[in-house]
């Protein structure tokens, strides 16, 4: 176990080997896993995986709408709390549309959706300069059927993390 910790720290590029064990122990006790939780996994609340899976990295929209639903508010509030607790990360919010609509209108609609999510994160205290937006219109569906069950999953704004501390 001790060897493993050392390896992780070396990979992370920390030069202060002498005191690294103490720092690592502090961090892992803070994550509340009592040694059971693999750092970087979805069980680690500081991890991007936790952000994606436990909090939820995406919010969904109604047809041709960009307003934030109550469900989406809950998810975005969780994202904001995480981002406020993990200030090393920046995000790109990707706005998407379903295939019902022309290509260029959907680009504009995706931009609206991404911006709605951005505004909500800002309202929850996330610094504006940590959030950029991009629209993919209808170019990147995740579900491919031509029915509402797929469309509803494709009308989305996805918060993609970048930067942050290197977690082994």
């Amino acid at each position: 176990m001790s060897r493993l910790k050392t390896a992780v720290i070396l990979v992370a590029g920390l030069a202060l080997a002498a005191c690294s064990d103490a720092r690592w122990d502090d961090a892992s006790s803070g994550s509340g896993g009592a040694g059971q939780i693999t750092p970087g996994s979805a069980g680690d609340p500081t991890s991007p995986a936790y952000f994606r899976e436990a909090i939820g990295d995406r919010v969904l929209f109604l047809v041709d709408q960009s307003s934030i639903s109550p469900t989406a508010q809950t998810i975005l509030a969780g994202q904001a709390r995480w981002l406020n607790a993990n200030p090393d990360y920046v995000v790109t919010i990707e706005g998407h549309a379903d295939e019902q609509g022309t290509r260029e209108y959907n680009l504009a609609l995706g931009a609206r959706r991404a911006n709605s999510a951005r505004e909500y994160l800002i309202s929850q205290g996330v610094a504006a300069d940590r959030i950029q937006v991009v629209s993919f219109g209808k170019e990147r569906p995740i579900e491919i059927c031509s029915e509402e069950s797929c469309y509803s999953q494709n009308r989305r704004a996805v918060t993609v993390l970048a930067g942050g501390a290197v977690v082994g």
């Binding site: 260029e104 680009l107 609206r112 937006v133």
Partner: peptide
């Protein structure tokens, strides 16, 4: 062309 800023095109 269209340009989008602050969600508005």
């Amino acid at each position: 062309y269209s340009q989008s800023e602050g969600g508005n095109s």
